[in-house]
């Protein structure tokens, strides 16, 4: 195994059970061997020329606060409620 599934899961902010780790490591491994067969293109291709279109930088209305918060699992006084961000578990 050339990668650590535990590390990848940590980067992706996922917790995997031992069974999930074992199965997913096999899946990723078999996908990597498929990916290793990809041939490098012989010459660098020119990308399609697409012009960027920018909108006018003007103020516009957005969702009312009440609607923006309507799907939040927990809110208080118009804010999202979270557990402690500092002083809890240290950052990975």
């Amino acid at each position: 195994m050339e990668f650590s599934i535990t590390e990848i899961a940590q980067l992706a902010n996922l917790r995997l059970t031992k069974e999930e780790e074992a199965a997913l490591a096999v899946d990723l491994e078999s996908f990597l061997s498929l990916a290793a067969q990809m041939r490098e293109p012989e010459e660098a291709a020119r990308r399609a020329e697409l012009p960027s279109v920018l909108r006018q930088d003007r103020e516009q209305s957005s969702l009312p606060q009440e609607e923006a918060l309507q799907n939040a699992p927990e809110t208080r006084d118009g804010c999202f409620v979270l557990p402690r961000a500092i002083g809890g578990e240290s950052h990975a």
């Binding site: 992706a12 902010n13 917790r15 995997l16 799907n71 939040a72 699992p73 999202f80 557990p83 578990e89």
Partner: peptide, 24 residues
């Protein structure tokens, strides 16, 4: 991440745990 919408793991005690558990 369990914050603005979507599933939230209710028992998480830290922000990091909230994100990881909600996603998992």
């Amino acid at each position: 991440d369990g914050v603005r919408y979507g599933f939230r793991a209710p028992e998480a005690v830290s922000w990091q745990e909230l994100i990881r558990e909600s996603r998992s």
